[in-house]
């Protein structure tokens, strides 16, 4: 088992963090293709109220185990050079980034397939819970569509 990597970030993921992450890969010259998935909080309208933010919480210990397992499965299944996963905890406002998944490989097709596999696994298997908060501070609990 590889050492666990830190996934959770308190609050939104800043676009500058994503840019820095891309920049760090410029020394890895066997890479020919990067694919990036960014999850952004939607201002959904639900019964006349507009979502202002999502507050994320998690069963962190289990989530960390799951992220490690998903990472290993993805490395076994696809010929990728590296991957990075970051997920927000706490409040993320509409329009801000809550999930950043980054896959790199020598050629594009593997990167396309690996990123979809990873994002679907994260959405369906990792115990993260999103509370959608409206302008009047009332809330409902989000459920992922599979």
């Amino acid at each position: 088992m590889k050492k666990s990597k830190k996934v959770f970030i308190e609050g939104p993921i800043p676009p500058s963090f994503i840019a820095n992450s891309i920049e760090k890969h410029q020394t890895k010259t066997t890479i020919g293709a990067h694919d990036i998935f960014l999850g952004q909080v939607r201002a959904d309208k639900i019964e006349d109220k507009v979502v202002q933010a999502i507050e994320y919480s998690s069963y962190i210990e289990m989530a960390q185990d799951k992220f490690d397992e998903i990472r290993e499965t993805t490395f076994d299944k696809f010929e990728i050079t590296c991957m990075h996963i970051y997920h927000s905890l706490g409040i993320v406002k509409a329009g801000e980034i809550c999930l950043f998944v980054f896959v790199s490989s020598p050629h594009r097709k593997v990167a396309f397939r690996a990123i979809e596999f990873l994002v679907e696994k994260i959405k369906s298997e990792v115990p993260v819970f999103g509370k959608e908060i409206f302008e009047d501070q009332s809330h409902i609990w989000k459920v992922n569509q599979l």
Binding site: Y59, C98, K123, P127, V128, G130, W141, K142, V143, N144
Partner: peptide, 10 residues
């Protein structure tokens, strides 16, 4: 033991 509602990450 942990009770987990539907997941909604990402």
């Amino acid at each position: 033991i942990a009770l987990l509602p539907p997941f909604s990450g990402g």
